[in-house]
Nucleic acid binder design. Structure first.
Lengths: 144, 144
DNA sequence: TTCTGTGCAAATGATTTGCAGCCAG
DNA sequence: CTGGCTGCAAATCATTTGCACAGAA
């Protein structure tokens, strides 16, 4: 299992792209965050390191990381596209509190298995999935 | 099990809102479509019946239907919010072909059960969920 | 040198909102 | 009557794109 940086380098090279300081910085920042980051949030952090970087570059680079398989798009249902590191062996789903927005990452192998089965039943080849569970976390239940 | 129209009437009354011909028309059109409709698509159909209706009214009414529990928002991951009738006893998830976009509605009780279980394990009270399976349909597999 | 990448600002696409007039209750 | 509703256009919001310049390879 190789680290994201070399994956990126390889991707860059394979596609005749160029490694730039901006891309390097954005990748670093991205990898450092455990949260699910929106492009704009990441932009804020990036500009703390280099105020000259533009929004568009962050958007473009995030899409690049996604194409390279390093980042994965995540949609919570508000209009914003978030990204998470896609260490592909660490898949998970989301359990989100409807009241405070707290987001727990969850995983259940039995569900994964059944999803695969369900797709096969319909003669589909499953390439991916996203599952979001919405509910109320213990804290918010007490609060009300 | 009461029909959506009376559910809407009750909702209207309970919240001191008003029943207008536009809302009536939009609800009718919405209920007649089996597809997952984006606001804009629905707007096209609506204006065939009454060209005077405005976009904003469709957006506003769809949100209203959602609040009333008659419609449910559906997000496929492109930027568009779609709606589907939420006859609450007919929940289903989605199996989407990544190539042609074909969307099959699926349901697996075992998965539903496990989702509930998973939320409980984290001390959440589950209020809803959305699950999207992405894959390749048989037709698109052959086509390539 | 030669393209690809970048920042900026303008463009886009979906959705929202302000407002003056309209109309259901 | 009156406060909610509507259509229209202008305003947002997130994201994309056109462009001239900058800088990796």
């Amino acid at each position: 299992m190789k680290d994201p940086k070399s994956v990126f380098s390889e991707y860059i090279e394979r596609n005749n792209l160029k490694m730039t300081p901006q891309r390097h910085l954005i990748l670093d920042v991205f990898l450092k965050t455990e949260e699910h980051m929106a492009s704009e949030e990441l932009y804020d952090v990036v500009r703390e390191h280099d105020p000259a970087v533009g929004q568009a570059t962050v958007y473009r680079t995030l899409k690049l990381l996604s194409d390279a398989g390093i980042a994965r798009e995540v949609h919570f249902g508000d209009g914003v596209t978030r990204y998470e590191p896609s260490q592909s062996d660490q898949h998970h789903d989301h359990l989100i509190c409807e009241s405070c927005g707290t987001n727990i990452e969850v995983l259940d192998e039995r569900i994964e298995k059944l999803q695969e089965e369900l797709a096969t039943k319909h003669d589909y080849v499953l390439t991916g999935h996203s599952m979001y569970l919405y509910g109320l976390c213990p804290k918010c239940r007490k609060g009300s």
